[in-house]
Design a protein around this nucleic acid. Structure first.
Length: 239
DNA sequence: TCATTAAATTGTT
DNA sequence: AACAATTTAATGA
């Protein structure tokens, strides 16, 4: 059920419309942008497709133009651990790209997605030449650090409503995922995969959050009404 | 463009 | 996990 390495197969150059969805391009100088655009590739990923796998050499720095990916890792016991979802506007793998190390995570499409890739040599060229690009990457690393710390907290919580709320807040991070606007395209089933709960429990949590007025549940997506409330939902851990 | 039908997603038990 | 209800997407005249 899981095909391999989609981006390396049917890839093409991005359309102008798709370039609009790449947040860091606007931070580049004209000459830098020309070079980056010439090197950028996009490819479709079907649900279950791997964008990259643990241990494979780094070929691209990846970003999500459209759709939804998940970042996971398999531990020694063979259990899959999901770290985070990757909604539109998210770019990832800069840590391993910087050091030219093999990928440390599996990136898999949860739904039909459009993935963009910047070849690693171009990535390094931009690091060497573009101030704007460096700012973006630095900002990205810093913001992601905050997310991982928050993710540890989320894992320790046993209140499902709060888990769903915090995980949702993470996906609505405007710095890491500028492609996500007011509404996030995600099904409750996909949310369940990311949070590690059953779909029914997620449904219940979302209904509760809607009743609190922090989100609105829509068909095939969620609308955030109060992001601050999502982030700071009370962790009333009851035993 | 509209009506019909299939598929996807949600709400409930 | 199964089911019914609802929403969207696809099809074809």
């Amino acid at each position: 059920m899981s095909t391999d390495l989609t981006l390396h197969q049917r890839r093409r150059t991005p359309t102008p419309d798709e370039l609009q969805g790449i947040p860091w391009l606007r931070l580049l100088q004209p000459d830098e942008r020309v070079r980056a655009v010439a090197e950028l590739q996009v490819g479709d990923a079907a649900p279950g497709d791997y964008v990259c796998r643990v241990g494979k050499p780094v070929t691209y720095w990846f970003g999500v133009v459209e759709g939804l990916l998940k970042m996971s890792s398999d531990n020694a016991q063979g259990l899959t651990m999901t770290f985070t979802g990757l909604p539109p506007g998210g770019w990832f793998g800069e840590g391993t790209a910087l050091k030219r190390e093999p990928y440390r995570y599996n990136i898999q499409a949860l739904r039909k997605s459009l993935v963009a890739g910047l070849p690693i040599d171009s990535f390094h060229w931009l690091l060497d030449h573009s101030i704007g690009f460096n700012r973006f990457v630095m900002n990205q690393l810093n913001e992601r650090l905050g997310q991982f710390i928050a993710a540890r907290e989320i894992d320790r919580m046993n209140n499902p409503d709060v888990r769903v709320a915090r995980s949702l807040a993470a996906l609505f991070n405007p710095v890491l995922y500028p492609g996500v606007g007011e509404i996030l395209r995600i099904t409750q089933q996909e949310m369940a995969y990311l949070v590690g709960l059953s779909r029914q429990r997620v449904n219940e949590a979302l209904t509760t959050l809607q009743a609190q007025g922090t989100i609105r549940v829509e068909y095939g997506g969620l609308r955030v009404l109060d992001l601050a409330a999502l982030r700071s939902s009370i962790s009333s851990d009851k035993k």
